[in-house]
Simulated assay, not measured.
Amino acid sequence: MSQQYTEQEVTDIKERVLTALETVIDPELGIDIVNLGLIYEIEFDGETGDTIVKMTLTTMGCPLADILTDQIHQALAEVPEVKNIEVKLVWYPAWTTDKMSRYARIALGIR
């Protein structure tokens, strides 16, 4: 059974997805992936509940990709509208410390 969400509902769902992703902590840095600026885009299909999380990693050969992907799946299980989750790693634009929130920079001592 498919459901149509209004644009506002989709926006709200994406906000809740982002909030859920704030519980995913980068084990090396001890800061969540949202504040690190690793989440580039969230796509949510209102008909199917399919959710695509486009994200990057701080370094290309980062060994944490699988761990973070598993944690993303666990975190998004808390958002009832989200059905199928796909995590897509993107390398462009490349991640830099500029993408970090002020909170993350302070926590890591980066100016």
Results as ranks from 00 to 15, higher is better:
residue 100 M to L: 03
residue 94 A to L: 03
residue 85 I to A: 09
residue 49 G to D: 07
residue 12 D to F: 06
residue 96 T to E: 01
residue 110 I to D: 12
residue 81 E to A: 08
residue 68 L to T: 02
residue 86 E to R: 13
residue 40 Y to G: 11
residue 39 I to P: 01
residue 7 E to H: 13
residue 9 E to T: 08
residue 23 T to W: 00
residue 61 G to S: 11
residue 69 T to N: 10
residue 4 Q to P: 06
residue 68 L to Y: 03
residue 76 L to D: 02
residue 82 V to Y: 03
residue 76 L to I: 10
residue 60 M to L: 12
residue 42 I to L: 14
residue 5 Y to A: 09
residue 65 A to N: 04
residue 55 M to H: 08
residue 87 V to Q: 12
residue 71 Q to D: 15
residue 28 E to D: 12
residue 47 E to M: 09
residue 10 V to L: 11
residue 98 D to R: 10
residue 36 L to P: 02
residue 103 Y to E: 14
residue 53 V to F: 01
residue 81 E to T: 01
residue 38 L to H: 05
residue 71 Q to W: 11
residue 30 G to D: 07
residue 84 N to S: 10
residue 22 E to I: 00
residue 95 W to C: 02
residue 55 M to R: 06
residue 79 V to G: 02
residue 36 L to N: 09
residue 64 L to H: 03
residue 61 G to M: 08
residue 59 T to R: 04
residue 73 H to W: 05
residue 94 A to H: 04
residue 70 D to Y: 13
residue 109 G to P: 07
residue 98 D to Y: 00
residue 84 N to L: 01
residue 64 L to D: 05
residue 22 E to K: 15
residue 85 I to M: 08
residue 101 S to N: 03
residue 56 T to Y: 00
residue 96 T to R: 08
residue 102 R to L: 10
residue 110 I to V: 15
residue 33 I to V: 12
residue 64 L to A: 09
residue 83 K to A: 15
residue 59 T to W: 13
residue 83 K to T: 15
residue 74 Q to H: 11
residue 53 V to P: 02
residue 6 T to P: 11
residue 95 W to I: 02
residue 1 M to P: 13
residue 80 P to H: 07
residue 110 I to M: 12
residue 102 R to W: 04
residue 61 G to P: 01
residue 108 L to M: 10
residue 53 V to Y: 04
residue 14 K to H: 08
residue 14 K to Y: 02
residue 38 L to E: 01
residue 81 E to G: 04
residue 19 T to C: 09
residue 76 L to G: 14
residue 15 E to Y: 06
residue 38 L to Q: 05
residue 20 A to T: 05
residue 16 R to M: 04
residue 55 M to T: 10
residue 58 T to N: 11
residue 77 A to R: 14
residue 37 G to E: 05
residue 80 P to Q: 13
residue 77 A to V: 04
residue 3 Q to Y: 14
residue 104 A to P: 00
residue 61 G to V: 01
residue 90 V to D: 14
residue 56 T to S: 01
residue 25 I to S: 13
residue 34 V to Q: 13
residue 79 V to H: 03
residue 35 N to A: 06
residue 60 M to R: 11
residue 28 E to W: 11
residue 27 P to M: 04
residue 81 E to M: 04
residue 57 L to P: 03
residue 101 S to A: 07
residue 37 G to T: 06
residue 66 D to I: 12
residue 26 D to Q: 08
residue 97 T to C: 00
residue 10 V to A: 15
residue 30 G to H: 06
residue 24 V to W: 08
residue 74 Q to F: 09
residue 10 V to I: 15
residue 1 M to K: 11
residue 22 E to S: 13
residue 53 V to C: 13
residue 68 L to D: 06
residue 67 I to G: 09
residue 70 D to W: 08
residue 35 N to K: 10
residue 29 L to W: 02
residue 84 N to T: 15
residue 40 Y to H: 14
